[in-house]
Design a protein around this nucleic acid. Structure first.
Length: 316
DNA sequence: CGTATTTGACCCGCGC
DNA sequence: GCGCGGGTCAAATACG
Protein backbone atom coordinates (compact mmCIF):
# COMPACT_ATOMS: atom_id res chain seq x y z
CA UNK A 1 0.00 0.00 0.00
CA UNK A 2 1.53 3.17 -1.07
CA UNK A 3 0.33 5.57 1.52
CA UNK A 4 2.77 8.19 0.45
CA UNK A 5 0.79 8.70 -2.70
CA UNK A 6 -2.25 9.93 -0.84
CA UNK A 7 -1.07 10.73 2.63
CA UNK A 8 1.08 13.75 3.01
CA UNK A 9 4.04 12.40 4.90
CA UNK A 10 5.93 15.61 4.89
CA UNK A 11 5.60 16.14 8.60
CA UNK A 12 6.87 19.28 10.09
CA UNK A 13 9.24 17.67 12.53
CA UNK A 14 10.80 20.93 13.42
CA UNK A 15 7.84 21.93 15.40
CA UNK A 16 8.68 21.26 18.99
CA UNK A 17 5.92 19.43 20.77
CA UNK A 18 7.28 20.03 24.24
CA UNK A 19 7.67 23.72 23.79
CA UNK A 20 4.49 24.53 22.02
CA UNK A 21 3.86 24.32 18.35
CA UNK A 22 5.79 27.26 17.09
CA UNK A 23 7.78 26.42 14.04
CA UNK A 24 11.44 26.76 14.70
CA UNK A 25 12.57 25.73 11.28
CA UNK A 26 13.98 29.16 10.51
CA UNK A 27 16.04 29.04 13.63
CA UNK A 28 17.85 25.97 12.40
CA UNK A 29 18.72 27.51 9.07
CA UNK A 30 22.08 28.80 10.07
CA UNK A 31 24.32 30.51 7.55
CA UNK A 32 26.60 27.95 6.07
CA UNK A 33 29.84 29.38 7.42
CA UNK A 34 28.33 29.79 10.84
CA UNK A 35 27.11 26.25 10.75
CA UNK A 36 30.51 24.97 9.70
CA UNK A 37 32.32 26.85 12.40
CA UNK A 38 29.72 25.61 14.79
CA UNK A 39 30.40 22.03 13.92
CA UNK A 40 34.11 22.45 14.15
CA UNK A 41 33.88 24.32 17.41
CA UNK A 42 36.34 22.76 19.82
CA UNK A 43 34.83 21.49 23.02
CA UNK A 44 35.33 23.85 25.85
CA UNK A 45 37.24 22.39 28.71
CA UNK A 46 35.00 23.91 31.34
CA UNK A 47 32.05 21.85 30.19
CA UNK A 48 32.07 18.99 32.59
CA UNK A 49 31.31 15.46 31.52
CA UNK A 50 28.45 15.37 33.97
CA UNK A 51 26.79 18.39 32.44
CA UNK A 52 27.18 16.93 29.00
CA UNK A 53 25.69 13.62 30.09
CA UNK A 54 22.77 15.39 31.66
CA UNK A 55 22.21 17.37 28.51
CA UNK A 56 22.34 14.22 26.44
CA UNK A 57 19.86 12.49 28.71
CA UNK A 58 17.59 15.47 28.48
CA UNK A 59 17.94 15.43 24.72
CA UNK A 60 17.21 11.74 24.68
CA UNK A 61 14.10 12.27 26.74
CA UNK A 62 12.96 15.00 24.43
CA UNK A 63 13.50 12.84 21.39
CA UNK A 64 11.66 9.99 23.07
CA UNK A 65 8.77 12.30 23.79
CA UNK A 66 8.78 13.46 20.21
CA UNK A 67 8.90 9.89 19.05
CA UNK A 68 5.92 9.16 21.24
CA UNK A 69 4.08 12.10 19.80
CA UNK A 70 4.85 10.92 16.29
CA UNK A 71 3.50 7.51 17.19
CA UNK A 72 0.37 9.15 18.50
CA UNK A 73 0.05 11.14 15.32
CA UNK A 74 0.42 7.94 13.34
CA UNK A 75 -2.24 6.28 15.43
CA UNK A 76 -4.57 9.21 14.92
CA UNK A 77 -3.87 9.07 11.22
CA UNK A 78 -4.73 5.38 11.21
CA UNK A 79 -7.93 6.05 13.10
CA UNK A 80 -8.87 8.76 10.67
CA UNK A 81 -8.10 6.41 7.84
CA UNK A 82 -10.31 3.71 9.31
CA UNK A 83 -13.10 6.18 9.96
CA UNK A 84 -12.87 7.40 6.39
CA UNK A 85 -12.78 3.87 5.12
CA UNK A 86 -15.87 2.84 7.04
CA UNK A 87 -17.66 5.91 5.77
CA UNK A 88 -16.63 5.01 2.26
CA UNK A 89 -17.80 1.43 2.75
CA UNK A 90 -21.14 2.67 4.01
CA UNK A 91 -21.47 4.89 1.01
CA UNK A 92 -20.50 2.09 -1.37
CA UNK A 93 -22.86 -0.42 0.20
CA UNK A 94 -25.70 2.07 0.03
CA UNK A 95 -24.94 2.64 -3.61
CA UNK A 96 -24.82 -1.07 -4.25
CA UNK A 97 -28.26 -1.60 -2.83
CA UNK A 98 -29.53 0.74 -5.47
CA UNK A 99 -27.14 -0.27 -8.17
CA UNK A 100 -27.35 -4.05 -7.99
CA UNK A 101 -30.56 -4.91 -9.71
CA UNK A 102 -32.32 -8.08 -8.58
CA UNK A 103 -30.92 -10.28 -11.28
CA UNK A 104 -32.20 -13.73 -10.70
CA UNK A 105 -29.87 -16.63 -10.96
CA UNK A 106 -30.51 -19.70 -12.92
CA UNK A 107 -33.14 -22.06 -11.60
CA UNK A 108 -30.63 -24.73 -10.80
CA UNK A 109 -28.71 -22.28 -8.72
CA UNK A 110 -31.64 -20.74 -6.96
CA UNK A 111 -32.57 -24.17 -5.65
CA UNK A 112 -29.10 -24.56 -4.32
CA UNK A 113 -29.19 -24.00 -0.59
CA UNK A 114 -25.68 -22.67 -0.70
CA UNK A 115 -27.03 -19.41 -1.97
CA UNK A 116 -28.45 -18.34 1.30
CA UNK A 117 -25.42 -16.48 2.51
CA UNK A 118 -26.77 -13.10 1.71
CA UNK A 119 -24.83 -10.02 2.52
CA UNK A 120 -24.62 -7.01 0.36
CA UNK A 121 -21.63 -5.63 2.09
CA UNK A 122 -19.02 -8.26 1.56
CA UNK A 123 -17.36 -7.80 4.90
CA UNK A 124 -19.87 -9.53 7.06
CA UNK A 125 -18.90 -12.93 8.32
CA UNK A 126 -22.41 -13.77 9.35
CA UNK A 127 -23.76 -16.77 7.56
CA UNK A 128 -27.33 -17.75 8.04
CA UNK A 129 -28.12 -21.38 7.53
CA UNK A 130 -31.85 -21.09 7.28
CA UNK A 131 -33.30 -22.98 4.41
CA UNK A 132 -36.27 -20.67 4.12
CA UNK A 133 -34.58 -18.03 2.08
CA UNK A 134 -33.91 -20.43 -0.76
CA UNK A 135 -37.54 -21.34 -0.86
CA UNK A 136 -38.54 -17.82 -1.72
CA UNK A 137 -37.65 -17.64 -5.37
CA UNK A 138 -38.84 -14.10 -5.93
CA UNK A 139 -36.68 -12.72 -3.20
CA UNK A 140 -33.39 -11.20 -4.11
CA UNK A 141 -31.09 -14.05 -3.33
CA UNK A 142 -27.60 -12.81 -3.74
CA UNK A 143 -24.45 -14.45 -2.55
CA UNK A 144 -21.89 -12.38 -0.78
CA UNK A 145 -19.89 -10.59 -3.41
CA UNK A 146 -16.59 -8.89 -3.04
CA UNK A 147 -14.30 -7.51 -5.68
CA UNK A 148 -10.57 -7.60 -5.46
CA UNK A 149 -8.09 -5.77 -7.63
CA UNK A 150 -4.77 -7.54 -8.01
CA UNK A 151 -1.78 -6.01 -9.69
CA UNK A 152 0.34 -8.52 -11.53
CA UNK A 153 3.20 -8.39 -13.96
CA UNK A 154 1.98 -7.07 -17.27
CA UNK A 155 3.64 -9.99 -19.04
CA UNK A 156 1.84 -12.46 -16.87
CA UNK A 157 -0.95 -13.76 -19.07
CA UNK A 158 -2.36 -16.27 -16.61
CA UNK A 159 -5.55 -15.25 -14.90
CA UNK A 160 -4.39 -16.67 -11.62
CA UNK A 161 -5.06 -14.78 -8.42
CA UNK A 162 -3.22 -16.49 -5.63
CA UNK A 163 -5.25 -15.90 -2.51
CA UNK A 164 -4.42 -19.02 -0.56
CA UNK A 165 -7.47 -20.95 -1.57
CA UNK A 166 -7.52 -23.81 -4.00
CA UNK A 167 -9.43 -23.02 -7.17
CA UNK A 168 -10.55 -25.15 -10.04
CA UNK A 169 -11.12 -23.45 -13.34
CA UNK A 170 -14.36 -24.51 -14.97
CA UNK A 171 -14.80 -22.04 -17.73
CA UNK A 172 -13.51 -19.11 -19.68
CA UNK A 173 -15.43 -16.60 -21.70
CA UNK A 174 -14.79 -13.45 -23.65
CA UNK A 175 -17.28 -10.86 -22.59
CA UNK A 176 -18.58 -7.99 -24.59
CA UNK A 177 -17.34 -5.09 -22.51
CA UNK A 178 -13.81 -6.44 -22.16
CA UNK A 179 -11.69 -8.04 -24.89
CA UNK A 180 -9.74 -9.94 -22.26
CA UNK A 181 -11.21 -13.35 -21.44
CA UNK A 182 -12.91 -13.87 -18.12
CA UNK A 183 -12.01 -17.01 -16.20
CA UNK A 184 -14.43 -18.82 -13.91
CA UNK A 185 -13.18 -20.66 -10.84
CA UNK A 186 -14.77 -22.79 -8.15
CA UNK A 187 -13.26 -23.40 -4.76
CA UNK A 188 -11.91 -26.92 -4.82
CA UNK A 189 -10.43 -26.94 -1.34
CA UNK A 190 -13.68 -28.31 0.05
CA UNK A 191 -16.00 -30.26 -2.27
CA UNK A 192 -19.10 -28.59 -0.92
CA UNK A 193 -17.70 -25.07 -0.86
CA UNK A 194 -20.04 -22.83 -2.86
CA UNK A 195 -17.58 -20.04 -3.48
CA UNK A 196 -16.90 -19.01 -7.03
CA UNK A 197 -14.69 -16.37 -8.42
CA UNK A 198 -14.37 -14.61 -11.73
CA UNK A 199 -11.06 -13.21 -12.83
CA UNK A 200 -10.66 -10.73 -15.62
CA UNK A 201 -8.12 -8.14 -16.59
CA UNK A 202 -9.11 -4.58 -16.06
CA UNK A 203 -10.05 -2.67 -19.18
CA UNK A 204 -8.23 0.43 -17.98
CA UNK A 205 -5.08 -1.28 -16.77
CA UNK A 206 -4.17 -4.59 -18.31
CA UNK A 207 -1.75 -5.31 -15.51
CA UNK A 208 -4.58 -5.31 -13.00
CA UNK A 209 -6.65 -8.41 -12.49
CA UNK A 210 -10.17 -7.97 -11.21
CA UNK A 211 -11.28 -10.94 -9.15
CA UNK A 212 -14.92 -11.11 -8.16
CA UNK A 213 -15.71 -13.48 -5.32
CA UNK A 214 -19.19 -14.90 -4.86
CA UNK A 215 -20.31 -16.57 -1.68
CA UNK A 216 -18.54 -17.49 1.50
CA UNK A 217 -16.21 -20.34 2.14
CA UNK A 218 -17.76 -22.96 4.40
CA UNK A 219 -14.34 -24.10 5.50
CA UNK A 220 -11.39 -22.47 7.15
CA UNK A 221 -8.71 -20.72 5.18
CA UNK A 222 -5.96 -23.15 4.18
CA UNK A 223 -3.27 -20.73 5.29
CA UNK A 224 -5.07 -20.04 8.56
CA UNK A 225 -4.71 -23.70 9.34
CA UNK A 226 -1.03 -23.38 8.63
CA UNK A 227 -0.81 -20.25 10.72
CA UNK A 228 -2.44 -21.87 13.71
CA UNK A 229 -0.42 -25.03 13.53
CA UNK A 230 2.76 -23.37 12.45
CA UNK A 231 4.20 -19.98 13.06
CA UNK A 232 4.47 -18.20 9.75
CA UNK A 233 2.70 -14.95 10.52
CA UNK A 234 3.71 -13.43 7.25
CA UNK A 235 1.30 -15.79 5.60
CA UNK A 236 -1.53 -14.29 7.55
CA UNK A 237 -0.25 -10.83 6.83
CA UNK A 238 -0.20 -11.72 3.19
CA UNK A 239 -3.93 -11.59 3.36
CA UNK A 240 -3.86 -7.95 4.19
CA UNK A 241 -4.87 -5.63 1.45
CA UNK A 242 -2.03 -3.56 0.17
CA UNK A 243 -4.15 -0.70 -0.98
CA UNK A 244 -7.76 0.12 -1.23
CA UNK A 245 -9.08 1.34 -4.49
CA UNK A 246 -12.15 3.17 -5.61
CA UNK A 247 -14.12 1.15 -8.07
CA UNK A 248 -17.58 1.78 -9.35
CA UNK A 249 -19.18 -0.53 -6.85
CA UNK A 250 -18.62 -3.01 -4.10
CA UNK A 251 -16.06 -3.53 -1.42
CA UNK A 252 -12.74 -3.86 -3.05
CA UNK A 253 -9.17 -4.51 -2.24
CA UNK A 254 -6.06 -4.14 -4.31
CA UNK A 255 -3.22 -6.50 -3.86
CA UNK A 256 0.09 -5.68 -5.39
CA UNK A 257 1.39 -9.13 -6.15
CA UNK A 258 4.35 -7.77 -8.01
CA UNK A 259 5.83 -6.62 -4.74
CA UNK A 260 4.46 -9.04 -2.22
CA UNK A 261 6.89 -11.71 -1.15
CA UNK A 262 4.17 -13.86 0.30
CA UNK A 263 1.89 -13.40 -2.63
CA UNK A 264 1.02 -17.06 -2.80
CA UNK A 265 -0.98 -16.77 0.34
CA UNK A 266 -2.64 -13.45 -0.10
CA UNK A 267 -6.16 -13.98 1.12
CA UNK A 268 -8.48 -11.43 -0.27
CA UNK A 269 -12.00 -12.68 -0.16
CA UNK A 270 -12.95 -11.18 3.15
CA UNK A 271 -10.56 -8.50 4.28
CA UNK A 272 -10.99 -7.57 7.93
CA UNK A 273 -9.71 -4.08 8.22
CA UNK A 274 -10.38 -3.77 11.89
CA UNK A 275 -8.56 -6.88 12.98
CA UNK A 276 -5.73 -6.06 15.40
CA UNK A 277 -3.17 -7.69 13.13
CA UNK A 278 -4.38 -5.63 10.24
CA UNK A 279 -4.21 -2.45 12.25
CA UNK A 280 -0.73 -3.34 13.35
CA UNK A 281 0.19 -4.11 9.79
CA UNK A 282 -1.28 -0.80 8.64
CA UNK A 283 0.79 1.04 11.21
CA UNK A 284 3.86 -0.84 10.09
CA UNK A 285 3.07 -0.13 6.47
CA UNK A 286 2.58 3.54 7.15
CA UNK A 287 5.74 3.71 9.19
CA UNK A 288 7.53 1.89 6.44
CA UNK A 289 6.26 4.22 3.78
CA UNK A 290 7.13 7.18 5.97
CA UNK A 291 10.69 6.01 6.36
CA UNK A 292 10.90 5.38 2.64
CA UNK A 293 9.71 8.87 1.90
CA UNK A 294 12.79 10.99 1.20
CA UNK A 295 10.94 14.10 2.33
CA UNK A 296 10.20 12.47 5.62
CA UNK A 297 13.73 11.22 6.22
CA UNK A 298 15.14 14.59 5.20
CA UNK A 299 12.80 16.34 7.59
CA UNK A 300 13.68 13.86 10.32
CA UNK A 301 17.38 14.35 9.73
CA UNK A 302 16.97 18.11 9.71
CA UNK A 303 14.98 18.00 12.92
CA UNK A 304 17.48 15.80 14.73
CA UNK A 305 20.51 17.73 13.55
CA UNK A 306 18.69 20.95 14.29
CA UNK A 307 18.01 19.83 17.81
CA UNK A 308 21.61 18.79 18.29
CA UNK A 309 22.76 22.17 17.10
CA UNK A 310 20.27 23.87 19.32
CA UNK A 311 21.41 21.83 22.26
CA UNK A 312 24.97 22.84 21.58
CA UNK A 313 23.91 26.45 21.33
CA UNK A 314 22.26 26.33 24.72
CA UNK A 315 25.41 24.86 26.17
CA UNK A 316 27.47 27.78 24.90
C1' DC B 1 -3.35 -43.18 -14.96
C1' DG B 2 -5.35 -39.65 -12.26
C1' DT B 3 -6.09 -34.86 -12.07
C1' DA B 4 -6.38 -30.25 -13.87
C1' DT B 5 -7.29 -27.29 -17.73
C1' DT B 6 -9.27 -26.05 -22.13
C1' DT B 7 -12.96 -24.99 -25.02
C1' DG B 8 -17.12 -25.55 -27.74
C1' DA B 9 -21.84 -26.47 -26.75
C1' DC B 10 -25.58 -25.62 -24.09
C1' DC B 11 -28.67 -23.25 -20.69
C1' DC B 12 -31.11 -19.42 -19.11
C1' DG B 13 -32.43 -14.63 -18.20
C1' DC B 14 -33.36 -10.43 -20.31
C1' DG B 15 -34.54 -6.92 -23.66
C1' DC B 16 -36.74 -5.91 -27.86
C1' DG C 1 -40.74 -15.47 -29.96
C1' DC C 2 -36.12 -14.52 -30.94
C1' DG C 3 -31.50 -13.12 -30.43
C1' DC C 4 -27.87 -11.76 -27.38
C1' DG C 5 -24.76 -12.37 -23.76
C1' DG C 6 -23.19 -14.22 -19.37
C1' DG C 7 -22.56 -18.41 -16.95
C1' DT C 8 -21.98 -23.48 -16.72
C1' DC C 9 -21.23 -28.17 -18.35
C1' DA C 10 -18.59 -31.82 -19.92
C1' DA C 11 -15.78 -34.15 -23.42
C1' DA C 12 -11.26 -33.66 -25.06
C1' DT C 13 -6.75 -32.66 -24.05
C1' DA C 14 -2.57 -31.71 -21.38
C1' DC C 15 0.36 -32.64 -17.73
C1' DG C 16 2.92 -34.75 -13.88
Amino acid sequence: MDYSSWVDTSLDLNSKPLRGHEVLLEKFRLPKEEEASFVERPRKNNVSVKEETGALVEELNRISAENKKLTEMLTVMCENYNALKSQFMDYVSKNREIEVAPSKKRKSESSNNNDNNITMNGNSESSSTDEESCKRPKEVVKAKISRVYVRTEAADTSLVVKDGYQWRKYGQKVTRDNPCPRAYFKCSFAPSCPVKKKVQRSVEDQSVLVATYEGEHNHSHPTQMEATSGSNRSLALGSVPCSTSFPSSGPTVTLDLTKSKSSTDAKSSAPRMDAPEVRQFLVEQMASSLTKDPKFTAALAAAISGKVFEQNLTEK
